[in-house]
C-alpha cells in the first residue's frame, strides 16, 4: 500500500448478486462515514467481476460485502480470487450478514479476511478497521 499518509480509509461497500437486503449495509455505511471513513457504494446486483473492477478503479483500501441470501460460499471466494488475480490481493476483504459458523473456515481460506455476522456492533467494526488502518499507516511510515 502506498501514499497512505494520514488520509482517511477508503472502503467500497457492495452487494453481490441478487441479494437486495440493504438494511445492514445502510447502517454500516452511516456508521463508517460517521467514523470519518470514505464510503463508496457500488449499487445493487453486482457480479464479483464488477466489484473487483470498482475496487481497483476507486483505489479503495477495504472491500466490504454484505450477504444475506446464502450465496456467499460461491461469490465471495470468486471475488477474493479476482482481486488477487488483478494484483489487488492486499485490499482488506470483509464479509457481513448471514454467514453460518461452519462456512467461516472456507471463506477465510479463500481470502476473506474477516466476517461480521448479523448482530455485530458497528462500533466493533469501526474499531477493527481503525486498528487495521493504523497498522497500515505505521507500516507505510
Amino acid at each position: 500500500m502506498t501514499n497512505t499518509h494520514q488520509r482517511p480509509l477508503r472502503i467500497l461497500l457492495a452487494k453481490l448478486g441478487m441479494d437486495t437486503h440493504t438494511v445492514g449495509i445502510t447502517i454500516i455505511a452511516h456508521a463508517l462515514r460517521e467514523a470519518g471513513m470514505e464510503v463508496i457504494f457500488t449499487g445493487l446486483k453486482q457480479t464479483p467481476e464488477m466489484v473487483a473492477a470498482a475496487a481497483i478503479q476507486e483505489d479503495v483500501d477495504v472491500v466490504g460485502i454484505s450477504t444475506l441470501s446464502a450465496g456467499h460460499t460461491r461469490n465471495l471466494p470468486k471475488l477474493a480470487r479476482l482481486l488477487r488475480e488483478a494484483g489487488a490481493g492486499d485490499k482488506l476483504l470483509l464479509a457481513g450478514g448471514v454467514i453460518p459458523e461452519e462456512d467461516r473456515p472456507l471463506l477465510e481460506e479463500a481470502g476473506v479476511d474477516r466476517t461480521f455476522t448479523m448482530g455485530s456492533d458497528t462500533r466493533d467494526i469501526v474499531a477493527y478497521l481503525n486498528e487495521w488502518w493504523a497498522q497500515q499507516l505505521a507500516a507505510d511510515a
Binding site: G17, K45, S69, G71
Partner: peptide, 9 residues
Amino acid sequence: MVEGEVGRA
C-alpha cells in the same frame, strides 16, 4: 448474473 443464487432464497 445469478451464479450461486439458484434455489437458495
